[in-house]
Design a binder for these strands. Structure first.
Lengths: 167, 167
DNA sequence: CCGAGATGGACAACCAGGTTGTCGAGTAAG
DNA sequence: CTTACTCGACAACCTGGTTGTCCATCTCGG
């Protein structure tokens, strides 16, 4: 606590707050690049949250309530998201044949194309990072980060906080 | 692309999207812990953005316009932030003696106490991470992340996207 | 077979943290 | 003195959430 010197190669030259900014900044850089590239490839108005929602839908959350649970947001918010996705023709909804309350969400071809492109771009950027760090280093970094997201069993499927606007 | 095996110890078992979630999740875990602990220590209604704003103010952005520039938000938004900080008694504003347009922002003793506690907790959590990873590993991780935030000279002083609610 | 309770979706009101646009007052430079 | 810029304030709006209420529908126990 009392600021005595530490025998590491670096002082605590980076404060805890800096660490937070590093994590956030890296995330932003990564996601921004993906969104930018997605725009360039014909998906101009995608938000990160759209991708997360589509993934959840594809994973089986095919109605507003389920999507809300999957994303840890209220079903009303999930319904809004579905509306936004519908507007952009990434999903369509049809009445469920089995349950008249449900409105079943389907991903359109356009939505599937978005998901494909998104995943590809993500992987491209990741590959560039890997190249930059050197072989094995990115996997190491990921393994280390994984320790911290695993500490509390955070629902990573729940990014409301990931749905931010770009700068 | 075609999913052929790669000669690393791990497959690209982690996709680019996973990497994003790891970064975001780590950030969230870190910040959530700090905010939670801050609440426990008598600052119940702090948001991450408050800390960032206070730091910018301390660094010299002592009026709404300057704070806005420093945080890369509009001065109107900055004024709202200052209002929020004032409400919570973290800052006070007085008329500038030198320029009658300016309203000079000062950090109160309570605000300074918050900043001290915040920094201390951040460093505590960072120390715990360091312990978890082993000596030198955290510095290494930070250095690696720094490469990616440095790529584009991102204004890390600009977290609007950092101002998210807790879960 | 029926009724109670859970579930799905919709609507309305609200909030936080941003945005734009406009404005008047104050300052600085010609 | 005039002109251009800056500061802060106000109003209206957007996004992505929230709560609370409501009705239609399903499910299950008796």
């Amino acid at each position: 606590m009392s600021r005595r010197k530490i025998y590491t190669d670096r002082m605590p030259s980076r404060s805890g707050a800096d660490l937070a900014l590093l994590l956030l900044g890296s995330y932003r850089n990564l996601v921004d690049e993906v969104v930018r590239e997605l725009a360039r490839r014909g998906f101009p108005d995608v938000r990160p949250s759209h991708e997360y929602a589509l993934q959840a839908i594809q994973a089986g959350a095919d109605n507003a309530s389920a999507l809300g649970r999957s994303l840890s947001i209220t079903k009303q918010a999930a319904a809004k998201t579905i509306a936004a996705l519908t507007e952009r023709d990434y999903v369509t909804t049809t009445a469920s044949p089995v349950d008249a309350r449900r409105k079943q969400v389907q991903i359109t071809e356009h939505g599937l194309a978005l998901m494909r492109e998104g995943a590809a771009i993500f992987d491209e950027v990741r590959a560039r990072w890997e190249q930059r760090l050197g072989p094995g280093e990115l996997a190491r970094l990921e393994a280390q980060l994984a320790q911290f997201v695993a500490v509390s069993p955070i629902r990573l499927d729940a990014p409301g906080w990931a749905a931010q606007e770009l700068g």
